[in-house]
Computed example of a mutant assay.
Amino acid sequence: MAKEKRRARKKRKKEREELERRQQERREAASARLAQHGLSTLNIARHFLKE
């Protein structure tokens, strides 16, 4: 039973890391598109992308 819990914990951790990586890529892509609109727009977008 302890092995199953460790495996489940590892799986959740791996899934969480993958989700964070995908979200980071999306934020970077969105930031790159918004950068052409100026620094103030980019800063506002960064704030909301964190949320």
Rank of each mutant, 00 (worst) to 15 (best):
R27S: 04
H37S: 07
R12W: 04
A29N: 10
R9T: 06
K5W: 02
Q24P: 00
A45H: 06
E18T: 10
A30D: 05
L49S: 06
E15A: 15
K13H: 04
F48V: 13
N43W: 10
E28D: 14
R16F: 12
F48A: 02
E17P: 01
R33S: 12
L39A: 12
R9A: 13
K14Y: 04
A2N: 05
L42D: 02
R6M: 09
L19T: 06
A8W: 06
R12P: 00
E28A: 10
K10R: 15
H37Y: 15
R9E: 13
R27I: 15
A45M: 10
R9V: 08
K14S: 08
E51N: 09
L39H: 06
K3M: 02
L42N: 03
K11Y: 04
E17I: 08
K5C: 00
E28V: 03
Q23T: 04
M1I: 12
E18R: 14
E18W: 04
A29Y: 07
R21P: 02
R26A: 09
Q36L: 07
Q36C: 01
A29E: 15
K3N: 05
K14T: 11
A35F: 07
L49P: 05
A30T: 08
H47Y: 12
E18D: 12
E4H: 01
F48N: 05
L49Q: 08
Q23I: 12
R7H: 03
A2V: 11
